[in-house]
Amino acid sequence: MADQERQVDRRGFLNDTFRVAGAIGLVGLGGFVAGRRGRSDEMLWQLDPHKCIACGNCATYCVLDESAVRCLHNFEMCGYCELCTGYFEPEPPSLTSGAENQLCPTGAIQRRLIEEPYYEYTLVAELCIGCGKCVKGCSAFGNGSLYLQVCHDLCVNCNECSIAVACPSQAFRRVPADQPYLPKHREGTA
């Protein structure tokens, strides 16, 4: 009996092979579809720069020691001003990169001469704490090219974002993972 059970003819072998291969294919296809579906449905936290009032809560209410919110710069909107009000104190002693002239308390903005009198301002993400001081300075006088965003290489995507809870202007919302940022757009700058 045992020998008879072990004997498998060619047709049986092929049938079993096709069944197993079909089952593996179906499971794989299902997993692939489910995986894709999961990715597109995943939602992340982001803050709308057009609602943000740069209150500074982003710097202190994030669950991370160093906030996942950082300042970004839209170069298309920037005026490349010599006297950038996002970089300099309102009344700087001089227009140089000396610490006493800089608005950013952590020195997170770098200034580089492009061509007299145009300067390029670049954010150093590692130094930025997301306090939004430069955002206020830029918006008060300039084009508002500096703005805050949740950086998704840092954000742990909490179920309930503690910054969103503390945001006084309800600027935080969920966005699809395939469009994780809400870039600020131009509004008629020269």
């Binding site: 209410y61 306090c131 503390a166």
Partner: peptide, 8 residues
């Protein structure tokens, strides 16, 4: 709820 400011 951030009622006491940012604490900075």
């Amino acid at each position: 709820w951030g009622e006491q400011g940012n604490g900075l």
